[in-house]
Design a binder for these strands. Structure first.
Lengths: 344, 344
DNA sequence: CTGAAAGCGCTAACAC
DNA sequence: GTGTTAGCGCTTTCAG
């Protein structure tokens, strides 16, 4: 491993061939007005010398980096890993690289991420907003600097930027209707923080489904948690302490549903016969629970792909942020498993 | 959103203050020989003008980018998402950003990733090798260019670069010993593809644990699968068809263990009383199964943190790749749940 | 303590 | 079809 490759530049190639750097650059980039022969010989020499173009230099010159910045709450969360997968796939197809930054659900980190990306001169930003974020000034700054921004999953409509979300409302509606179809009439909802728009949409879907089917909404059957297994347990305990306990539960997401399931089992109630249950997100573990947890699929990889595609189309339009931003709403598909299917 | 921020450079700040760009640069970077007053006023002006340093320009000048490249098979796989989480955490602490590239387990993609990183002039590369990769020339090229490289999980010892792996052998040994301690004497192993070193290590740990405890290895009790839920089912079926069925199973990883569990249940055998079971990887779902699946924790986040730390220490030593590369072996911790604890 | 000047590697006018 | 020249924004000698 003695022979270390010294950095070779287009100047080096030019010197070897007795031509100028400009010609080398043109040849390597397949410019039109270049002799076929020159191009061939330049490329050969470049390969022979193990030349790797310095993208930093060309970025500085061109004013673009071919890098996309992605801000997510945490790569450790399955959902975001999948979205990243989708984004990276489309990015690579367009010869772009992906820089990631985790906010850890902290507003301050999110701000740091935006700053890091701006300084790195990324050509575009994809972001899923942290739960803690109230102020959107950092995202507005991205817009002001003319850098395309696309939000996914946790979007902020008032920002007026393109976004990809799933239809939380329709998903929640379908989940609730499914429970109604199973014969349930006392359907509870364990909700999330209502300032988070997706959680609020799910509540609305639940309420409208009940109303639309002539079932009165019972405030006692709606409890709000912190979106976690523990919180699901606590909320379910609360529901079980009611005089009239529910015969079904629609939980705002799967971890909450899981906590609820554990509590129902601990109370010696049967799932789904005594209490049916359905979650949201279709996390991997739901399939393996006993009984299998019904849920709503969020099409994570597709979300990443769509978000990236949206960004690339933004990148091609000059009049950014002028017209109404495009909003892609992905279908939320019901996944029925044993936890919600009552034997007739 | 009319007022678009025009790109402001150190020249702009200099002009406003009637000083030179050099002084502005020094002030912003807290150079020693600069008047306290100048520094203050420069920073104030920078903030007022919404100045963001252009890292592309400074990278070109300095010859380093403060960017780390990470190559993983897929961000969609939980394991790698967690490792990324750990890497990114340490990177951010060191004011570094993380560029990711997914190989999708393809050698060709892995090569493209290396090339993209080299061109992007990343200051270091972290990689987990694709299952398909036989040829390591692309990694050798990273070394030749003097860019620090650290491998994690799927390492190639012969490359002579630092790496972080977990102790698969010890983990498998501990898992098997745990089953022996529970009184099991007919312990089966469902293995993986033996050309993958981590799977082979787990087989060895299993065999040595049996030998060390005076239990003869029974070839019938060792079956090889394809590391999936379905394969786990098939392998378990095979084990259940033996005259002498096992009283315990050590599965090469959790999905295999899950398939085995399902088959055991379907055959109306009790877990753990009839057949105890333990997996490997400590996937999230294991905790939520009934009974909870015992497993071996791989310390994924720690692996990312250690790998990144190792890279940063490489970054500080000039005589890279000279001495014996450091190899960090993380402890594989037994996680005992109901699936392997027999009532005495 | 600050200014002048050069240069990191590349590309794009503008010449010829 | 190729060369010349300038410059992207920043940092760092070297002067003073």
């Amino acid at each position: 491993m003695r022979e270390k490759i010294n950095k070779v530049t287009i100047e080096d190639i030019a010197r070897v061939l007795n031509i100028t750097a400009a010609t080398v650059s043109r040849a390597l980039n397949d410019h039109p007005g270049i002799a076929e022969n020159t191009r061939r010989i330049v490329k050969e020499t470049a390969a022979r010398l193990h030349y790797q173009p310095n993208r930093i230099a060309s970025s500085l010159r061109l004013g673009r980096t071919n890098i996309l910045g992605v801000i997510i709450p945490s790569a450790e969360i399955n959902f975001f890993g999948s979205v990243i997968h989708g984004i990276e796939k489309i990015a690579n197809q367009n010869r772009y690289s992906v820089l990631i930054y985790q906010s850890n659900e902290l507003y301050e980190h999110e701000k740091l991420g935006v700053q890091a990306f701006l300084q790195a001169q990324v050509d575009g930003v994809l972001a899923s907003v942290s739960k803690e974020t109230i102020n959107a000034d950092h995202f507005i700054e991205i817009k002001k600097r003319g850098v395309p921004l696309v939000l996914f999953d946790r979007a902020i409509d008032s920002l007026g930027v393109p976004s990809v979300v799933i239809d939380d409302y329709a998903g929640a509606f379908a989940a609730t209707k499914h429970l109604i179809d199973q014969g349930c009439r006392h359907i509870a909802h364990i909700g999330g923080q209502q300032h988070v728009s997706i959680f609020n949409q799910r509540l609305k879907g639940y309420i409208d489904a009940l109303n639309m089917h002539g079932i009165a909404v019972n405030e006692d059957l709606i409890v709000y948690g912190r979106v976690s297994v523990d919180s699901g347990r606590e909320c379910m305990q609360q529901l079980l302490s009611l005089k009239q306990t529910p015969d079904a539960v629609f939980a705002v997401e799967d971890f909450t549903a899981l906590g609820a399931m554990q509590t129902i089992k601990d109370a010696d109630r049967k799932i789904p016969d005594d209490i049916a249950i359905i979650g949201f997100a279709n996390e991997q573990f739901g399939e393996f629970l006993t009984p299998g947890l019904s849920s709503v699929n969020q099409q994570t990889v597709t979300m990443g792909e769509e978000a990236a595609s949206l960004l690339f189309s933004e990148l091609q339009t000059a009049d950014r942020y002028q017209s109404n931003p495009k909003k892609i709403v992905l279908e939320a598909r019901l996944v029925c498993r044993a936890s919600s299917i009552k034997q007739k």
